[in-house]
Design a protein around this nucleic acid. Sequence first.
DNA 1: ATGTTTATAGTCAAATTTGAACAAGGAACC
DNA 2: GGTTCCTTGTTCAAATTTGACTATAAACAT
Lengths: 224, 224
Amino acid sequence: MWSTRLLVLGLVRWLGPVHGYLVRRELDSWRMPGVGEIGAGSIYHALKKLTTDGLIEVVATESVDDRPARTTYRITVTGESEFQRLVREKLWNVAQADDPFHTAWSFANVLGKNENTAMLRRRAEILYSRIEAVTVLLASTTGECAPGREEEFLPPHVRAMLKRQTDLMVVDAEWCETTAARIESGELDLGAVPSPVENENRREAIRTDDFQNPAVEQWQSTFK
Amino acid sequence: MWSTRLLVLGLVRWLGPVHGYLVRRELDSWRMPGVGEIGAGSIYHALKKLTTDGLIEVVATESVDDRPARTTYRITVTGESEFQRLVREKLWNVAQADDPFHTAWSFANVLGKNENTAMLRRRAEILYSRIEAVTVLLASTTGECAPGREEEFLPPHVRAMLKRQTDLMVVDAEWCETTAARIESGELDLGAVPSPVENENRREAIRTDDFQNPAVEQWQSTFK
DNA sequence: ATGTTTATAGTCAAATTTGAACAAGGAACC
DNA sequence: GGTTCCTTGTTCAAATTTGACTATAAACAT
């Protein structure tokens, strides 16, 4: 994932003077699906890189209570403006999520009709169970931070994002079920993938026809 | 992205004896948002790795028409079963898509109310324009491959996946608009992020209270 | 008492990804 | 007739990521 820079810079900024282990813990505690997980090594690497780039600086290297020495960092003025730039870049730029299911689906035809419908239905079930879990989470927490009720607090922006996740999972699950039904009924035939040879012919035909479907280009250009 | 192996192996399998450049071209022609893009170098690296792993084998290294020499590969028997395993692994395992917007949203509070609503509304607009483009694409193509109409053909499984994409984009866009409205009305206050100190206190409170909200654990466990 | 996890804190080699560079033929342009 | 750009095909150094490993103290079990 390429958001490592933003994540680590943002966490150093937010957590004030921190050492790598705290950043790691904080990220682990987020463990938000959708926010790619970052290995321990990547965090320390990012901290060093950000330091040589002048975006953060070493505050001190010291050991407390005979524990292993730790280096604490804080954000610099340059880092602050780079952070502002990065957040805006990532938020304004509408990038497509990188979906492993999408990639694998390209080869879904190797599963037979039965395995495919089974797979899609199980996927839908799992999605529904996750939706349920998030719903429970949202119901058992609040967006207000009341003293004495700290464990019930979930920041409003996190709650909003969780709502988005469930909305997305609902349509995804529905798509899985609809698609399973379509495959079962024979309406959708995944086996109808052109063989490489057919595909080559098709490609050749398109090329020599000197005619590309304009909708394809139109569509691809919206992602530039 | 960690689907490189599957993608390259699958393409070598599908395209029969191929050289790296063809794989590259095929992937470029897909240029499906959601299927992570793979750099040229990664393809050649994957081909070499797959070869040393015995999943594919070199057919020949030759140069045609005085063009640069090229090495062609084809899948092996071991490769075929590994491919079958990989496809199933990726399809059955319900992994969360890695969403850059989600990551950046964690820091959305640095944008003010105005910039935030503007950002969300522009995002919605862009999503709608993409939905429109895909809709046009689906309408101007068919799932049947008729000779003489090759440029109108779009494989059924691709059409199905595009439908999923639009469904997802529709909810995403709606969420953006709803959220923009909630921010504007003051109902949703992104500035209400606990300061690091508050957060530390909260964390401390939770730890010493020896009480974790069970819903959090419940929720996280569904992603294991 | 003694062995075994667990939490803290970070390093390092190996694997992977990126993207520019290289090389050479052909088409387009002026 | 020369310059520039595009397509074909691949390589390579540098950047990044992974995840297993080191080390120590406290907590816990036997």
